[in-house]
């Protein structure tokens, strides 16, 4: 039917590398393969080196794994800087994330083999424990990054955060004027719903989407129980009910948005502080090992 002119897209391709792949599948799982190979070599080496009397971190193989592990930990922690330091150059944060994920997971094998399965109540095991906390929180992070974005997009229905809040404010203005003819008691219910701070809830409420004492729900329950008038009547109470229903729907969207965002971010509040603690414990671990050489 038609011919497309042959155009040299090569330059643009090279420049933008717009391959449509997520961070997990980056370059056909390049970093999964590398991390897998590293783990395999570490395990084989563990048995091949046959340290006597039993494997430990002080053997030549233990030092090798320890050095690799320490370098990896420092490098993995640098993702935080890389992400924020927008320098020029042919790097992509997606590749960094991909490597961060798979090499971070490989650290389970490298770190554990480095211990030689010797644990105790000391700074060495503390460092190991912190490392595992960081990795486990990271695994949670990977799982939510893989599963939640679609839900976030579905919930937003093309509305930005600002638009959601503005839509709520618009409903509130209408509710405010519609509630004018109500009696004192019912007006108080509406005022309570309007006065409640949308964002004044704790982390627990956000994460679980459980908003006990939500005054909009209370007010809606009051008006919704009254079906004495025909549907679509001009009674102010019916108008208020309809508006309260709209308010609840809008509030639910905002709350779902906050819940998903909280689930996507909450792990970072463990991952990052634990990383800082890990770096401190790691320093103590290395210094003490060399001090008692």
């Amino acid at each position: 039917m038609a011919s497309v002119p042959g155009q040299d897209q090569g330059f643009r391709e090279r420049r933008q590398s717009s391959d449509h792949e997520g961070f997990l599948a980056h370059k056909r799982f390049r970093w999964l393969k590398i991390a897998g190979a590293v783990c395999l070599i570490a395990i084989l080496g563990y048995f091949w080196s046959d340290v006597t009397p039993h494997p430990n971190g002080g053997s030549w193989y233990g030092y090798t794994l320890g050095t690799i592990g320490a370098v990896l930990i420092v490098w993995l922690a640098l993702l935080g800087i890389r992400k924020r330091n927008m320098t020029e150059g042919r790097w992509s944060l997606k590749a960094w994330t991909s490597a961060h994920v798979y090499l971070g997971l490989a650290l389970i094998v490298i770190g554990t083999l480095h211990t030689g399965f010797q644990f105790g109540w000391n700074v060495h095991t503390l460092a190991y424990g912190l490392m595992m906390v960081v990795i486990l929180s990271g695994i949670y992070g990977i799982s939510v990054y893989a599963s939640l974005p679609a839900a976030l997009s579905n919930n937003s229905r093309e509305m930005t955060r600002k638009e959601m809040v503005e839509a709520l404010a618009a409903i509130d203005r209408q509710l405010h004027s519609a509630a004018q003819p109500l009696n004192r008691e019912e007006a108080d219910l509406v005022i309570a719903a309007l006065d409640q701070d949308t964002f004044g809830w704790g982390l627990g409420a956000r994460l679980l989407a459980r908003y006990r004492g939500c005054t909009t729900t209370t007010a809606l329950a009051h008006f919704a129980s009254d079906w004495s008038r025909p549907v679509g009547s001009d009674d102010p109470r019916d108008k208020v009910r309809a508006l309260l229903g709209k308010r609840k729907t809008q509030l639910d969207q905002i709350r779902r948005h906050m819940r998903i965002k909280a689930l996507l971010e909450v792990w970072l509040y463990i991952h990052i502080p634990a990383t800082i603690a890990l770096l401190a414990a790691l320093t103590a671990h290395i210094v003490s090992v060399f001090f008692y050489w």
């Binding site: 897209q9 933008q16 717009s18 997520g22 994330t97």
Partner: peptide, 24 residues
Amino acid sequence: GIEGGPACVRACPTGAAIRVSPEK
């Protein structure tokens, strides 16, 4: 003029941001 190309794509940690030309 910035080496490495569009920052939005380079800075996306998950690979969600892509730049495309329609004919491709």
